[in-house]
Design a protein around this nucleic acid. Sequence first.
DNA 1: CGGAAGGTTGAGGAACCTCAAGCATGGTGG
DNA 2: CCACCATGCTTGAGGTTCCTCAACCTTCCG
Lengths: 238, 238
Amino acid sequence: MAYLERTPDADVAYRGQSLGTRKPAEAQPSLCSFGAKTAQYRPHEVVYYEGDPADRIFEVARGTIMLFKLLPDGRRQVVEVLRAGDIFGLPNGSEQDCTAETLTDAKVNALDMHQVESSPAIQRQLTRCLVAQMQSLHEHAVLLGRKSATERVASFLMHLVPDRGTNVCVGPVDEANDSRQVKLHMTRQEIADYLGLTIETVSRVISDMKRRGLINVERNDEIRLNRVCAVCQLTGRH
Amino acid sequence: MAYLERTPDADVAYRGQSLGTRKPAEAQPSLCSFGAKTAQYRPHEVVYYEGDPADRIFEVARGTIMLFKLLPDGRRQVVEVLRAGDIFGLPNGSEQDCTAETLTDAKVNALDMHQVESSPAIQRQLTRCLVAQMQSLHEHAVLLGRKSATERVASFLMHLVPDRGTNVCVGPVDEANDSRQVKLHMTRQEIADYLGLTIETVSRVISDMKRRGLINVERNDEIRLNRVCAVCQLTGRH
DNA sequence: CGGAAGGTTGAGGAACCTCAAGCATGGTGG
DNA sequence: CCACCATGCTTGAGGTTCCTCAACCTTCCG
C-alpha cells in the first residue's frame, strides 16, 4: 500500500496529455494548497475498491489512474482513465461506485469531504473538473454505443495525442511530418475493457493498422502514428 | 420555442422515478429559490443544440429530458436521460457538448453561470447532482460496453421502477404481487439510441420478454413487469 | 534454458445489424 | 362512417462484425 505524506508541492499544474475532450487546464490550484494529504503508488496498485466508504475526494497529482466496474460474472468495464488534474472518488454520501487502480507510478492528493464543502474555491475547481470529466464520459458513451472496433481504437489513439483528441480536427500541425509517438500506459486487456471490446479484437485492429502503414508498434505500450491525420479519419468524427 | 417566465415555485422537491443509480433527493432546494428563470416545453422540443454557447445551467423541474450526441453520418447516442432534480447544460466555458431535447412536457429552470459561481449553496447542490449523474454515466458505460441486448433492455426497464434500479437487489416488495407498470416516455428508436442497439433489436427483445411472460405491453410506451424480480435477474447484475 | 506474462493469429460461431415487408394505431377528410 | 395516410412498431431472411476458443509467438527474467 502507498505511504502518506504531507506536501505543499504539485506536479498537477499542466495537463499536457489530456485523455478525453478536455482542454489543458490553465494552472489550476492543486488540492495540496488546501491541505490535502499526498500518497504515492506503484503501477497496478488499488487506491480503493468499489464498495469502500466514500468520504474523501482524490486528485491525480501525477501519473495515470483508471476507474472500473465489475459485473458478478467477471466482465469488466473501465469507465474512466484519469490524468494529472483529474478528480475521482466522489462521495455520494455512501460508497465508492468504482474501483480505482493505478496504471503507472502515481501521486494522489486526498481531501476530506467536509473540507471541500467548506471552501468555495475548492468547490469551483471541483465543478470545473466534474464538468470536464462528464463531457469525456459523454463522448465515451458515443464510442461504446455507436462506434466500430476500428473507430474505437483510432479514437483511443487520438486521445493520446495532445490537442488532437477533441471533436474539432485541427489538421496536421506540420504538413511534412505528421507523425507522433504515444505511450499507452495500458495493456491490451485494459484497452479492451476500456473500449468495450475483447483483447483479440484490439490486437487485430492494431495489427491491421500496422499492415496498412498507419502506425508502427515500437513497443507493446508505445505506438507511432505515422500520419496522425490519417488515424483521425478513422475515428468516426469525419 | 418555449416561453420564459419567472416563478418562485418548484415541482422538483421529490425525485420519485429516478433513472440511474441515484437515490431520491431529499427535499433539495430548487434553483428557483435562487432566481432562476423557468421555461415550459412540449414533448420533443429542443432546449439547446450541441455547439450552442454554454453560459447557463439548467435544472429539470418537471418532465423528462434527454441529452444526445450525433456522429457526422447520423448515428446518434443518447448519453443521459434526465428527470426532475437533474442538472444539465453544464458550461465548460464554451459550447454545449450535447443536444438537449424534451421527451415529455417539461419545465426547466435556467440560471446564469456567474450566479452559480457566487453562491456556495448552489455550488454544493450542483456538486451533489453532478456526482450522482456521474455515477449513472459509469453504470451506463458498463451497460454499453459489456452487456448483451437482453441485459440492456432489462436494465432499462428496472431503472424505471422506483428504488429497484440500483445495484443492490432489494427483492420483491410484496411476495404475492411483484408486478409493476412503468411508463417509458421514449419511442423504440430513442430507447435503441440510448442502449446502443437498433430499433429492431429492441423490438425483438421486448417481444421475446412478452413471449416468456415476463412483461405485458399495455401500450407502446407503457409496459407491465409481471414479476419485477424476474426482470431484475436479466440485468446482468446477478 | 525454462517458465511466465503479455500479445498475436486463425477457424468457427453467436449476436446483432441491415434490408425489406407487413401490421397496428390514430388522425384527417370525403 | 369509412377510406386513406402517416407514424411507429414488429417480424423475417440474410449478412457482418465481433466474440470464443485454441494454438502459437515474443519478451523478459531468474
